[in-house]
């Protein structure tokens, strides 16, 4: 990709040239949502918002994202992780699924820990389903929600499905 194209993509995602993958992802999800649906902050410009124009904005955002991910992920081989299908394919949000989603986004646990303020240890335990090392339920739920939001996956599903496994483990212990 040449310089010019690169800076055009950054411009589309409204980022400074050179922004990292994390920033690219945040901007992408945010802008895609903003231009894919009506909200109180977009309705006021309805007259400027011809559907045609809006469609082309969403398309540009998608293209910019794909191109930047390809560019930023070394060895990505032109194959950007297609998050939407990855998430849809998740049958159950267990520890393994969370790890896979995170890895598909090329994010390491340390980054997650820094951004979410969840300790590295707990994050490891969550992914490994090392239930006995995890904090009490109320905290755990909070952590799961935060982590899910960070990964841009359905946090309600994550909490419900992960906690079901946690509860099963607790019941086992009681027997």
């Amino acid at each position: 990709m040449d310089e010019k194209e690169l800076s055009r993509h950054y411009e589309t995602l409204e980022l400074e040239p050179g922004a990292d993958l994390r920033a690219v992802r945040n901007a992408y999800y945010y802008l895609k949502d903003l231009y894919s649906q009506d909200s109180y902050d977009t309705v006021p410009v309805q007259e400027e918002f011809l559907d045609k124009k809006r469609g082309s904005i969403v398309k540009e955002i998608e293209e910019a994202y794909q191109a930047l991910v390809n560019y930023l992920v070394p060895g990505g081989g032109g194959q950007a992780p297609d998050d939407s299908t990855t998430f849809l394919q998740v049958e159950i949000f267990d520890g393994k699924a969370l790890r896979e989603i995170r890895e598909s986004q090329k994010i390491n646990l340390r980054e997650v820990s820094l951004a979410t303020h969840i300790s590295l240890e707990f994050l490891k335990y969550i992914e490994a389903e090392h239930f006995s090392g995890l904090p009490p339920e109320v905290y755990l739920k909070g952590y799961l929600k935060t982590y899910a939001e960070y990964l841009h996956v359905d946090s309600e599903r994550v909490v419900t499905e992960y906690m079901a496994r946690y509860d099963a483990w607790t019941r086992e212990g009681e027997q």
């Binding site: 409204e14 945010y30 802008l31 903003l34 231009y35 909200s39 902050d41 977009t42 410009v45 400027e48 918002f49 124009k53 904005i57």
Partner: peptide, 15 residues
């Protein structure tokens, strides 16, 4: 606080 981002984005993309 997101309203700042959406307004900024819309000003940029539409105007």
């Amino acid at each position: 606080m997101m309203v700042g981002f959406s307004s900024r984005s819309i000003l940029r993309k539409y105007l």
